[in-house]
Structure formats: structure tokens, C-alpha cells
Amino acid sequence: LTVEVTLDGRRIELHGLSEEAHEILRHALERNADDKEIKKILEELRK
């Protein structure tokens, strides 16, 4: 799955996400998580 997010003013596409990762990010974006929170989530998903 692919998600497009804006971090530090740049639009980035995240490819190859699992369903779980996609859901976690989608929920964070829906509640307008800040860049710091999104980065933390991405860091966790990379593990």
C-alpha cells in the first residue's frame, strides 16, 4: 500500500506499507498528528 504524507513541508510517498502500517498512519493523519508524531510512527514501523 502507498500513503502520501507531508513532512517538513515536503510531500513524500511511502510505498510497500503493510495493512497495519497503513491503518496506523491513516489514523494519525486523520487526527492531524504533527510532524514529530508522524516521524516517530515511521521510525517504529521501520523496525
Rank of each mutant, 00 (worst) to 15 (best):
L1G: 08
L1W: 03
V3Q: 05
E4W: 02
V5F: 02
T6E: 12
T6Y: 03
T6K: 06
T6H: 13
T6C: 15
T6I: 15
L7W: 00
L7G: 03
D8Y: 00
G9R: 00
G9P: 03
G9A: 02
G9T: 03
R10Y: 08
R10Q: 15
R10G: 08
R11K: 15
R11C: 12
R11W: 08
R11T: 15
I12C: 10
I12Q: 05
I12V: 13
I12M: 08
E13F: 05
L14N: 01
H15R: 08
G16L: 06
G16N: 14
L17E: 01
L17T: 01
L17F: 07
L17S: 01
L17W: 04
L17I: 07
L17G: 01
S18P: 07
S18K: 04
E19C: 11
E19F: 13
E19P: 12
E19M: 12
E19D: 12
E19N: 12
E20P: 04
A21G: 08
H22L: 14
H22A: 15
H22G: 10
H22I: 14
H22T: 12
E23D: 11
E23W: 03
E23F: 03
I24N: 09
I24S: 09
L25D: 02
L25R: 00
L25I: 15
L25N: 01
R26D: 05
R26V: 11
R26C: 05
H27G: 15
H27A: 15
A28F: 06
A28K: 00
A28R: 00
A28G: 01
A28S: 03
A28C: 05
L29K: 04
L29V: 09
E30K: 04
R31V: 10
R31C: 10
R31P: 02
R31H: 14
R31T: 12
R31K: 10
N32V: 07
N32L: 12
N32H: 12
A33C: 07
A33Y: 08
D34T: 14
D34G: 11
D34H: 07
D35R: 04
D35L: 07
D35C: 05
K36L: 14
K36C: 10
E37R: 03
E37F: 07
E37A: 08
E37N: 04
E37V: 09
I38F: 05
I38H: 00
K39Y: 12
K39M: 15
K39W: 12
K39L: 14
K40S: 12
K40T: 12
K40A: 13
I41T: 02
I41M: 06
L42K: 00
L42R: 00
L42Y: 05
L42G: 00
L42A: 01
L42E: 01
E43M: 10
E43N: 11
E44H: 11
L45Y: 05
L45F: 10
K47F: 12
K47I: 15
